[in-house]
Design a protein around this nucleic acid. Sequence first.
DNA 1: AGAAAATATTAGGCAAGACTAAATCTTGCC
DNA 2: GGCAAGATTTAGTCTTGCCTAATATTTTCT
Lengths: 255, 255
Amino acid sequence: MMEKSGPPLTAPVEDYLKTIFEIEVADAAGSGRREHPPAAGTNEIAQALGIAPASVTGMLRRLAEQGLISYERYRGVRLSDAGRRAALRTIRRHRVIEAYLTSALGYPWDRVHQEAERLEHAASDELIDRMAAAIGEPTTDPHGAPIPTRDGTLDARPLLALVDVDVGHVVRIRMVGDRDPERLRYLAELGVTPGADVRVVARAPFGGPITLRIVREGSEGSRVTGRSGRSDRESAIGPSLAAQVFVESRRKREA
Amino acid sequence: MMEKSGPPLTAPVEDYLKTIFEIEVADAAGSGRREHPPAAGTNEIAQALGIAPASVTGMLRRLAEQGLISYERYRGVRLSDAGRRAALRTIRRHRVIEAYLTSALGYPWDRVHQEAERLEHAASDELIDRMAAAIGEPTTDPHGAPIPTRDGTLDARPLLALVDVDVGHVVRIRMVGDRDPERLRYLAELGVTPGADVRVVARAPFGGPITLRIVREGSEGSRVTGRSGRSDRESAIGPSLAAQVFVESRRKREA
DNA sequence: AGAAAATATTAGGCAAGACTAAATCTTGCC
DNA sequence: GGCAAGATTTAGTCTTGCCTAATATTTTCT
Ligand SMILES: [Mn+2]
Ligand SMILES: [Mn+2]
Ligand SMILES: [Mn+2]
Ligand SMILES: [Mn+2]
């Protein structure tokens, strides 16, 4: 067996697989424990990629033909093993590139994502490995997302959305969504960056703001604003933003 | 006026423009001084890109519609100003990437070309500028080819093919063709790398070999083989190889 | 259950790029 | 000056990806 590669995947195909993988991961995390493995829907994929649902249907047929997904009309899709491998490979590239751009070239963390979105399809495996080696084999990207290993293992530690943390708890920021540059600049401004510890000081009801205090500065992003040592300030963020910030519980302590 | 960019060019379009530019340069150099500006032929382009001539015709029509070339059926093409600007931009990207990969990531000079061939279409201007800055704004790529400036100026110093150097002359290696990895490895092996000085010791008639002595080591490529201090060795190379090695005359001295 | 809403697919097009086979220009040469 | 060789273009297809409009299926809600 061991049918390695076949023809190289096109950039759109890699982006589809990556997107499907990310939807599967998000669904699995959302539904507590996974039921049957979650399936990604056509609309979900279309929205994530910014293209029309009808276009997705066409691509899904092709992906199924190539054995990268399993596809049942009207039922959504699931990555095959080959598809998952390909997705993880692209995700590794993306994240290594992001890490390299910030570490080695001084790129601000709010602009690496769009750059990586294109480079991930053009860089060879050798280049990715050299980049990773040059910056000390990082295990996460600048936004805290784990980098898959060369052989396709992804650290899937379960994280908690900041919006779900109870008042009084101190948590460590682990990961923030990297899609929106403005959001990233704002979070860096607040000091909400991977590695920082924050205490949830208050939480207003009915979708109101969450008040945080930075207990310890993070690493990434502080370079972005140049500011530091303002760790004693409180800030309030809305729940939709807090839903995109993922944390690790440090000590269970009831509110 | 000042109609800046328009829609971004596709990777194939960038490669066509680059190829046409390189053909025009080679033709101009070949014909001593330029007559009327030289025109690139369909077959030439097809061969350089490794695609069928019929496919080239179709693309040339599209490039002409976009104002990137002037095209008269059966008569060959010439870059427009817009086309030349685009070509130089791509060439700058290509060469900066090659230089960065060797300087910053330890890439061997025989493998940077293929990597740059893909990355040149995916890197942003900002990334190219950061790369160039990170390695000290190099003026040539690892193979000695001049890097166009940000504003599209290219150092067009006339070079001489090593095959045309008379016996007895000492010349400095300036540039070698970068397409063939094997050839590059072989040249590095011989010490024929940019910056090296070589004396043409002998030249056999009827397309026979050219005997060289390395008078002074070059910089690039010596790292490739790790070897050095063997500058006292003579080597003989064939005329077709010597036609791909370009040099600068150091002192005019009759043979 | 049955209709409305949400999801998803089909139908029909288009543009970019590439190919092969079959014309058609241009040129060099006798 | 004409003709064969070489260069180039045309004709006719394909595949990939994407779009809109129309249709079909599934889910949800009364
Ligand atoms: Mn991408
Ligand atoms: Mn990221
Ligand atoms: Mn290229
Ligand atoms: Mn080069």
